[in-house]
Design a protein around this nucleic acid. Structure first.
Lengths: 126, 126
DNA sequence: AGGTTGTATCGATGTTCTTCGATTCAAGAT
DNA sequence: ATCTTGAATCGAAGAACATCGATACAACCT
C-alpha cells in the first residue's frame, strides 16, 4: 500500500495535480500518523539518533504517559511505514524508514516551475 | 503560531534533533490537517490550479459530501495555515500558501549528511 | 522451574472528529 | 425591498482516537 504507484508514482503528487481518491486515502494515513504531538516527538527522537536506532526503554520515560500508550503510538508509526523495529534480547529497538519521509518531502515539494502567480490579494480582477 | 521560531527555527526539525513539546504541538496541527483524504484532495485541487486559486463552487461538487462539510474542511486547512481565501462578489476563492508546504517539506528532509548506518538487522550486538 | 524486567495486547472510558440538516450571512438580481 | 444563489456557522449524532489499568508474552537471571 502506497509506494507502489499511488503516492510517488512518478513524482508529482499533491501540489501539481489533483490526487485521486485512492491516493488521498493512502497518503492521509501517513499524515494522520504524524498528526499527533507525541508521535511527532517519538519520530524525531528515533530519527535523530546517531546510531540509527533507539530502545523503547529510552523513549517511554521521556513522556508523562503510560507504557502501553507509548507502545500504541509506536505501533501507529510503524503501520504508517515511518519506522520499523526489531527485538534484540529483552529490548526492542526502533529506527526510521527514511524512504517514507523522503517520499512525503517529495510530495510536498513543488517542481520549482510553478511560481504561484499572485496571492489574489494584490491581483484582484478590477 | 508556528513559523516564528518553533517549527523551522533555523531549519533542522524532526529528523535531526528531538522536537520539544511546543514545537510538536504546533507541527501536529498542520499534519493533522493533512491527515484526511478529503482535505488532501481539496488541497491538491487548490494547489494544482494554474491560476493559483479555485472557487469553492468548483470544489464542492467534486465530492459526495454536503456543502457544509466541504466548508468545514476548508476552514481546517485555512486554520492550519495551508491555504487562504477571499470573497469576491458572490463567490469565495481559495489559494495555496506555499510557505507552509515548503516548511513541511524542509522539516521532512534530512540534511544528506545523515546516512542512517545499518537497519540493525545486519548489525546485531553479538 | 520460578522470578524479574521489558514490551505488546486487551477492554473500557472520555474526548475529539466527521458528517449532516437547518439556519444564517453575504452579495447580486428583479 | 424582496428574492435568489453561494458560502459559513450552528447544534446533534455516530465513528474514530488517545489514554489507562490489567493482563499476556518474551527473554534473561538465579
Amino acid at each position: 500500500m502506497l509506494g507502489q504507484d499511488g503516492v510517488d508514482g512518478c513524482c508529482p503528487g499533491l501540489l501539481t495535480a489533483p490526487l485521486d481518491e485512492a491516493q488521498s486515502v493512502e497518503l492521509a494515513k501517513v499524515f494522520k500518523a504524524l498528526g499527533d504531538p507525541i508521535r511527532l516527538r517519538l519520530l524525531s527522537m528515533i530519527a535523530s539518533r546517531a546510531g540509527g536506532e533507539v530502545c523503547v526503554c529510552d523513549l517511554t520515560p521521556a513522556f508523562d504517559l503510560s507504557q502501553p500508550t507509548i507502545s500504541h503510538h509506536l505501533k501507529l508509526l510503524r503501520q504508517a511505514g515511518l519506522i520499523d523495529c526489531e527485538r534484540r534480547g529483552t529490548w526492542v529497538y526502533y529506527w526510521l524508514l527514511p524512504e517514507m519521509t523522503d517520499r512525503l518531502a517529495g510530495i510536498l515539494t513543488r517542481p520549482a516551475g510553478q511560481p504561484l502567480p499572485e496571492p489574489a490579494g494584490t491581483a484582484g480582477d478590477a
